[in-house]
Design a binder for these strands. Structure first.
Length: 510
RNA sequence: GCCCCGGUAGCUCAAUUGGAUAGAGCAAGUGCCUUCUAAGCACAAGGUUAGAGGUUCAAGUCCUCUCCGGGGUACCA
């Protein structure tokens, strides 16, 4: 504006400030260098918001910017060929909390787990189980080259023996492999669901990759892509081609490479019917994928697929989070299910607890790699930042208990206009920020802002607690105590709201 | 080689998307429990935001290059 008006920024700011109409919630408007116009909220307006916050309760902070648009968040989706590992914990927490934030912002959200039950992994998995199963009968069945050597496979084989006896020895090899693969996945998924539940994560829908083939959607997509000239045959193989792709083409099906007796194509191929299913069949306005950095390279392919199918690419949103480096006592632990070297999510939750894991996974943006030291996580559990926030909640619960013991009716409310102390005002202002914060986190798809806010809110309460005696013995302060009890209750409610959004618990005692 | 993400206090990370004097937690320093939970609070200390250019009223944030770390770059999933 300075350039257009040929005036110094400060002069413009002063003119603007002078013409701002008086409003009840603005105490004063002043100007600061180099050209800011500052609004100061009126103390009595700030104080008057406390009953409103209290009345809103668990809905405080909710926004309508989502307009009930239907959004799907698909996350975790780890291969169901073994238990969930710590590697998936970050994915689970990001997806779950992002979904909660979007709900709070007014979106209609579905949480989905994509079950990879159609690839060659299933066959390798089934073959692994069959081989171990054979061992139990002293029958030598070769272990697959890309099999799973981990002990849980042997446990599954044992279970097969208990349930079905020697039935699988009599079946044709390929049939046994396929059936055991599918059966094994079903068993593993039960465990996965339970492990995630321990972490406080649940899914609205478990979507089977296999169903994309069984429903005929895959063939339908292939026909559609063929028509658009996006499918190329070369030798016996089928390729997907698109000008956006860096490489010339992506393999869809090749009998030489994937000698699957069921004739299944590569897993890359199912991305197309899957995104069609999301956006067209089920009609989500937006589909959010939560992927680890190791899958980053797949993004262009899925986007190209959407384009080739004539869909708006912007309806697909990819959140790529950086990897978690797992450590123990400063040593890096390398994990993979196929090597059998891994730490399960279950072990971690049992050892550390869900709350610290969730909070830790949330404190950083998705863009930075995360070091997670198992020893440190256990050692420092007492000083974990999540406890700082929960302690504020607990402290309020304690104060309210104390007040009731002193004969106060903590539900009675009070005169908010008495809340003029700077620490009281600061606490209320912090509570008033939550709607804005939820809007920001939802717009930027950045759930980590919640942890920063939670700490600031807890800090504002602790300062208030230090500066202001809430439950006074002096009868002359009865009015003030009532007002402060109301404020404490409102603070507890907002803390609980934030803790719930993060999926962490709200203890009344610690 | 090419593509993506980082590099901010001794360590781990924030910074409302280009705004005011870059903030927290650990670690180290000083002080606060006969009064609602000290898992807390206050004070003090800690910085050339990897480096060099550029864009503009304004850069940790945007552009170019260099260096360092992580991930990807399969006819694996």
């Amino acid at each position: 504006m300075a350039r257009v008006l040929h005036r110094a920024p400060m002069q413009i700011a002063e003119r603007v400030a002078k013409h701002i109409p008086a409003a009840s919630f603005v105490a004063k408007v002043d100007v600061a260098r180099p050209g800011y116009v500052n609004f100061t909220l009126a103390e009595d307006w700030v104080a008057s918001q406390v009953p409103a916050i209290l009345a809103a309760g668990e809905t405080w902070g909710n926004q309508t910017l989502g307009n009930n648009a239907r959004v799907q968040v698909e996350f975790v989706s780890a291969n169901p060929t073994g238990p969930i590992t710590i590697g998936s914990a970050r994915n689970a927490v990001i997806g779950d909390v992002l979904a909660s934030v979007l709900e709070a912002a007014g979106y209609a959200v579905q949480r989905e787990y994509y079950v990879n039950d159609a690839g060659s992994k299933v066959r390798h998995f089934g073959g692994s189980i069959l081989s171990r199963y054979g061992d139990l009968f002293n029958v030598d069945i070769p272990f697959p080259e890309n099999g799973y050597p981990a002990p849980y496979v042997t446990d599954l084989a044992q279970l097969v023996k208990e349930r079905f006896g020697s039935a699988y020895l009599d079946k044709e090899r390929e049939v046994a492999v396929r059936e055991l693969g599918h059966w094994g996945i079903k068993q593993v998924l039960h465990g996965v669901e339970d492990d995630l539940k321990q972490l406080g994560v649940h899914f609205d829908n478990w979507f089977s990759e296999r169903s994309l083939y069984e429903s005929g959607l895959f063939d339908q997509m292939m026909a559609q892509l063929s028509e658009g000239g996006y499918v190329v045959k070369y030798d016996d193989a089928t390729w997907f081609r698109h000008e956006d792709l860096e490489k010339d083409a992506v393999l869809i099906r090749s009998p030489q490479v994937i000698p699957d007796p069921e004739g299944r194509p590569t897993y890359l191929a199912s991305d197309m019917p899957y995104l069609w299913n999301k956006l067209v069949v089920r009609g989500f306005d937006r589909a959010i994928y939560i992927w680890g950095a190791d899958h980053h390279g797949d993004v262009p392919r899925v986007q190209a697929g959407a384009k080739a199918l004539g869909l708006d690419v912007d309806r697909l949103v990819f959140i790529i989070y950086q990897m978690v480096t797992l450590m123990r006592g400063g040593e890096v632990i390398r994990m993979s299910k196929s090597s059998g070297e891994f730490v399960t999510l279950r072990e971690l939750v049992d050892e550390v607890g869900a709350d610290p894991i969730r909070f830790n996974m949330l404190t950083r943006t998705v863009d930075v790699t995360l070091d997670f030291d198992l020893d440190l996580a256990v050692e420092q559990s007492d000083r974990n930042p999540v406890f700082y926030v929960q302690y504020a909640h607990t402290r309020i619960a304690g104060v309210l208990r104390h007040a009731r013991e002193q004969g106060w009716d903590t539900e009675a409310g009070g005169d908010a206009s008495l809340l003029t102390h700077p620490s009281e005002q600061a606490l209320i202002r912090k509570m008033l920020v939550l709607p804005e914060l939820i809007a920001m986190a939802a717009t930027n798809l950045a759930p980590h802002h919640l942890t920063t806010y939670a700490r600031e809110l807890a800090s504002a309460f602790h300062a208030f607690y230090r500066d202001c005696r809430i439950v006074s013995d002096d009868a002359a302060d009865a009015e003030l105590s009532a007002a402060r009890l109301m404020l404490a209750r409102a603070a507890k409610s907002v803390l609980a709201r934030v803790l719930h959004l993060m999926g962490t618990s709200t203890p009344d005692r610690m």
